Deep mutational scan, measured.
Amino acid sequence: MIVFVRFNSSHGFPVEVDSDTSIFQLKEVVAKRQGVPADQLRVIFAGKELRNDWTVQNCDLDQQSIVHIVQRPWRKGQEMNATGGDDPRNAAGGCEREPQSLTRVDLSSSVLPGDSVGLAVILHTDSRKDSPPAGSPAGRSIYNSFYVYCKGPCQRVQPGKLRVQCSTCRQATLTLTQGPSCWDDVLIPNRMSGECQSPHCPGTSAEFFFKCGAHPTSDKETSVALHLIATNSRNITCITCTDVRSPVLVFQCNSRHVICLDCFHLYCVTRLNDRQFVHDPQLGYSLPCVAGCPNSLIKELHHFRILGEEQYNRYQQYGAEECVLQMGGVLCPRPGCGAGLLPEPDQRKVTCEGGNGLGCGFAFCRECKEAYHEGECSAVFEASGTTTQAYRVDERAAEQARWEAASKETIKKTTKPCPRCHVPVEKNGGCMHMKCPQPQCRLEWCWNCGCEWNRVCMGDHWFDV
């Protein structure tokens, strides 16, 4: 396979590697080409510095992935760790964990309700045991953590790749202090920090972006993250068709209702045909949960890209028209025109101005929308079919299609509260000796007794199943 190397943020060049090629071997190839010592090179990928003893497969490097290699003399205490030698983080029983690669970060837990604080980093599902597709590297999971809308060759929703760059020099040479644990960490600028490894760059702020994971991409090709779309790892039924499908869209209502993408497309087109989208002054033209839940309008309007190009163009047109109407304007009634106009409040005669090729020149009556006339309008008909009709959803289907309910059931079956801080902690095999993952707590306690870890627990039921 081919990976592209950008040395000291210059133009990239291809390097041929195998899945079992080590990072140090990659350094040696680059060092020979650039005429520099291999031990002064640092390989940066997806916000993480890659260790010498890791392989291309370990690092989730795919065909035509772009890695950054910078030349920086080692500072005291760094060289041993980078070589894969006596790194205290690798000691058996050590409590410190390697910062998780962005290629394996899962933010789907952050669609849980606000009262489930902490689960994004504490609760991990076991539903990723799908067998890898044919042709994928051994052991590589097909679980997708992110979804994007690819405006490039795909023109559809695709699995996405999370990447990070330095907000100062805009190069992907920043190593994160810690990985993101929720969508806010990724979507809110300057929320996460790190250290830029580019020479002479003092940058410390992280800037995240997404790429389409279905095809090789260049540095400049980015895609918009659709953070309401998630892999259906909890096997929730769709609120409309009641099938279990994946991926799904999880509405931001209190129940976190789930809808499959085909039904979401149908829901949007139906509402669009009836012009029953909601115009929100802050958000724009949007839709609420299909069950009509309060405070559930979709905030990231790129989710409506699921409509496809033709329907999305209609959505944008109707949204612009609705904006004009909300501002007190009118639409030209001549067939084939429909231009938005903003006449004076007491102006009865409205002319669709033909300047700049935008208007048709038609003069019409503001009251009856017919060709302009003197005197009273002959008839004014009330528009028919403008009443909002509820999208029919079966109550039982709505009850079963809740992301929140599956989460709470998982928590109930696989977790116990920490005796000190009461945060839910998952036990997935292993011994009875637990350690609270909350940095402010870190209590060592017994899963069996529910009390602080002691010699009695150690001698009596340390390794009970």
Rank of each mutant, 00 (worst) to 15 (best):
residue 5 V to T: 03
residue 19 S to D: 07
residue 21 T to S: 11
residue 26 L to I: 08
residue 31 A to I: 00
residue 31 A to G: 10
residue 38 A to F: 04
residue 39 D to S: 08
residue 39 D to L: 03
residue 47 G to S: 02
residue 50 L to E: 01
residue 50 L to P: 00
residue 54 W to N: 05
residue 55 T to N: 06
residue 55 T to E: 04
residue 59 C to Q: 02
residue 59 C to K: 02
residue 59 C to N: 01
residue 59 C to E: 00
residue 65 S to C: 08
residue 70 V to R: 02
residue 72 R to G: 11
residue 74 W to E: 14
residue 75 R to S: 13
residue 76 K to F: 14
residue 79 E to M: 11
residue 81 N to P: 14
residue 83 T to K: 11
residue 89 R to N: 14
residue 90 N to L: 13
residue 93 G to M: 12
residue 98 E to I: 08
residue 105 V to C: 15
residue 107 L to D: 15
residue 110 S to Y: 06
residue 116 S to D: 15
residue 124 H to S: 14
residue 125 T to C: 09
residue 126 D to M: 07
residue 127 S to M: 11
residue 127 S to P: 12
residue 143 Y to T: 08
residue 144 N to D: 04
residue 148 V to Y: 00
residue 149 Y to L: 07
residue 154 C to H: 00
residue 155 Q to H: 13
residue 156 R to F: 06
residue 162 L to W: 00
residue 167 S to T: 12
residue 169 C to G: 01
residue 171 Q to W: 04
residue 187 L to P: 01
residue 188 I to C: 08
residue 189 P to D: 06
residue 193 S to F: 12
residue 198 S to E: 11
residue 200 H to P: 05
residue 201 C to V: 00
residue 203 G to K: 03
residue 207 E to Y: 06
residue 212 C to F: 01
residue 217 T to S: 13
residue 220 K to D: 13
residue 225 A to R: 02
residue 225 A to V: 10
residue 231 T to P: 13
residue 232 N to D: 00
residue 232 N to K: 00
residue 235 N to S: 13
residue 239 I to D: 00
residue 247 P to A: 04
residue 248 V to C: 05
residue 282 Q to R: 09
residue 286 S to C: 02
residue 287 L to Y: 00
residue 287 L to A: 03
residue 288 P to R: 06
residue 293 C to E: 02
residue 294 P to W: 04
residue 294 P to I: 07
residue 300 E to L: 04
residue 302 H to M: 10
residue 303 H to Y: 06
residue 308 G to D: 14
residue 314 R to D: 02
residue 314 R to A: 03
residue 315 Y to V: 13
residue 319 G to Q: 08
residue 324 V to D: 04
residue 329 G to V: 03
residue 329 G to A: 04
residue 330 V to M: 11
residue 331 L to H: 04
residue 337 C to L: 03
residue 342 L to H: 09
residue 346 D to Y: 08
residue 350 V to T: 05
residue 350 V to H: 03
residue 352 C to I: 02
residue 355 G to C: 09
residue 358 L to D: 15
residue 361 G to R: 07
residue 364 F to A: 03
residue 365 C to F: 02
residue 368 C to M: 02
residue 369 K to W: 06
residue 372 Y to T: 06
residue 374 E to K: 07
residue 374 E to R: 06
residue 375 G to D: 14
residue 376 E to V: 09
residue 378 S to H: 11
residue 384 S to H: 10
residue 387 T to F: 09
residue 391 Y to N: 07
residue 391 Y to L: 05
residue 392 R to D: 07
residue 394 D to P: 06
residue 396 R to A: 11
residue 402 R to C: 10
residue 403 W to T: 03
residue 410 T to S: 09
residue 411 I to M: 12
residue 416 K to Y: 07
residue 417 P to E: 14
residue 418 C to Q: 02
residue 418 C to H: 02
residue 419 P to L: 05
residue 422 H to A: 07
residue 422 H to D: 08
residue 422 H to E: 08
residue 424 P to A: 15
residue 431 C to K: 05
residue 433 H to G: 04
residue 439 P to F: 08
residue 441 C to E: 00
residue 444 E to S: 15
residue 446 C to T: 00
residue 448 N to A: 08
residue 448 N to K: 06
residue 453 W to I: 15
residue 459 G to M: 15
